[in-house]
Design a binder for these strands. Structure first.
Lengths: 214, 214
DNA sequence: GTCTATATCTAGATAGAC
DNA sequence: GTCTATCTAGATATAGAC
């Protein structure tokens, strides 16, 4: 039994420490210590510290991709969209250490660099599909140039909302407050381009959720 | 003569290396090597590597603050606003290493943490003043809740546009292309709330600048 | 002010017994 | 699979001569 369990234990411990202290500030000795195993044991399960990071990143991707997997003819209403964004921000919160050091992460491990770019592409495409779905049913109107700029801005919010909240020492990653505000930020970018009915719907949704924050 | 010059040389060399490789991946030996001085000499001028980082950060702040220093009754037109944003993004590009590792930077040096929060506060207030100025002359209309959300989103763009462009391997920090696109992104967030005359003016400005990119 | 040489420390990683 | 002990490399920082 031990093998699988120890490996999992190392990964869980690493994730918690990386999120708390930043990947760069966590040593393999600290991980071993915190997991109550020996450093040697850690290296029996992972060939290097980078391997731990890569494995965590893989798990993040595996969980995020199905959330992003929106087909061209998706037809989500406001509530669905909210729910989907919530899932994605929740996951990003769980693996938030990844989003704090994107450049360093990319520089250090070439495999991560490619994976990250692929991920961002898919996320952008997912957002684009959602806009397209809204356009198709006449809920949204935006010209092509502005659409690209909007997508850039959406990506900024999707990627950086959580690290931004962290810097400001905002509490609420555990209870979901941060996530709610992140989603509100994302939706707020789209709201101005919505037709009046949908606009009211989205505005109402945002207001309602924000009102329930502590 | 030597004292002042060597100190400057160290700072310039450090800045270039930090921007290229990331602060964490630059050793004091590398700085000394690149600057053609000895490691010992470097430590004659700076007591620690952190001191170099702090000094660079101070210089960044000293240059950024006058740009952000917008009084309550400012009355910038679209071109002025563009110019102001350009100055700020240009400076942020010069010191872009700071924006890649905000969390780590804050964690490592408490003094930087306070300074950073202060800076963000001032930047947010500056943005708020600009919105207020537009509102005062009837160019902009937005309700209070949405205003806060918009300010959050503006902050995201102001802080993270450059690191975002870096991850995507976008070229053009030197020739100003990145800056232009960052500004376009920022203005695009405001455009939907503008009255029609100003809206056309801003849209025209954005289109014109973007059209001149390589 | 600047150099060379080196001290100190700590991180990642390995060896080999159990 | 797990441990203890240890190697090695490299980074920050200092000492002391010039």
């Amino acid at each position: 039994m031990a093998k699988r369990n120890t490996r999992e234990l190392i990964l869980e411990t690493s994730l918690a420490l990386f999120n708390d202290l930043g990947e760069q500030n966590v040593t393999t000795n600290l991980i071993a210590d915190e997991a109550d195993i020996s450093p040697g044991n850690l290296y029996y399960h992972f060939r290097s510290k980078n391997d731990i990071t890569i494995e965590l990143f893989k798990r993040f991707i595996v969980q995020l991709e199905p959330i992003l997997d929106v087909s061209d003819d998706s037809n989500l209403d406001a509530e669905d969209l909210w729910f989907q964004l919530h899932l994605s921000f929740e996951l990003k919160g769980k693996y938030r250490f990844l989003y704090r050091n994107l450049t360093d992460l990319s520089q250090k491990v070439p495999a991560l660099d490619r994976a990250l770019k692929g991920l961002f592409n898919r996320e952008r495409r997912a957002a684009s599909f959602q806009l397209a779905a809204l356009e198709k049913r006449g809920s949204l109107k935006i010209d092509r140039g502005q659409r690209e700029l909007l997508l850039n801005n959406l990506m900024l919010a999707l990627i950086y909302w959580i690290p931004y909240a962290e810097i400001l020492d905002e509490q609420g990653l555990e209870d979901g407050n941060i996530q709610v505000r992140a989603i509100a930020g994302v939706l707020q970018m789209v709201i101005p381009y919505l037709a009046s009915a949908e606009r009211r719907e989205f505005e109402h949704l945002v207001k309602t959720y924000l009102a329930h924050l502590n």
